[in-house]
Design a protein around this nucleic acid. Sequence first.
DNA 1: AAATTCCTCAACCGCCGCAAA
DNA 2: TTTTGCGGCGGTTGAGGAATT
Length: 251
Amino acid sequence: MGRSPCCEKAHTNKGAWTKEEDERLIAYIKGHGERCWRSLPKAAGLFRCGKSCRLRWINYLRPDLKRGNFTEEEDELIINLHSVLGNKWSLIAARLPGRTDNEIKNYWNTHIRRKLMSCGIDPATHIPLQEQKMKMTISFVEGREEGDKSSSSSGSCEEQSVWPARRRPEEVGEKKQWICPDLNLELCMSPPFQLPPPLPQVFFEEPVMRESFCFNCRLGVKNSSECNYCGGGFLGLNSGAVLDYRRLETS
DNA sequence: AAATTCCTCAACCGCCGCAAA
DNA sequence: TTTTGCGGCGGTTGAGGAATT
């Protein structure tokens, strides 16, 4: 089962676009605007899938696209944004005028990733590889010492390439306990527990900075003055560097 | 000069969220 | 409330050009 395809496969062109197809698409959108991609190909006399037309327009034909190499500033911005947003390419692209998500994604995978690796930084977590390995080991060992000795899951955190285990806020205090971020074994009637988005490296420099974060923050819906994570700052981050996604949305 | 490997990036695929029916 | 279909997104692929052997 599943959904029917967005267009008839039999009579659609695939692969690279020809100059003529580009011209047809540009002419149609200039005349009618960007609307109803599904019916656009037929109306524009193109034997293409609507999705394909949309992609071609957004990634290549749009007049406001910036061409050429990425600047150092753009590089930095992409790295910063990626450190808080992860692979949310469309959100990252929204902060870089004239760049598309596809372009940034490609650039990340071909250039920046390698650049970070060569600096000894894990491109996925933005933590120096050496340090990350150490932290993973510490959390693994602590988990075994403090937690249930017979715990069958205690070994998996180190093996998996996941964000280092972090304290849950309600567990910070006298009771030391580390958890594996993928596991939520709580049985209670409450909104599901969610760790805040990955934090920049600076967060891990000091062991216990994060005493509390508010309910709204946990749900990701609102800021609170009592919360360690809420507040303004760069890209909707406070000094604790947790992202407010609402501030990143495009207008 | 030819063969091979590497790299880039445009394009495709499949899934998801949302709105309309 | 459920189903359907569109737009949008992120991951992946593969053609073609560049670099290397």
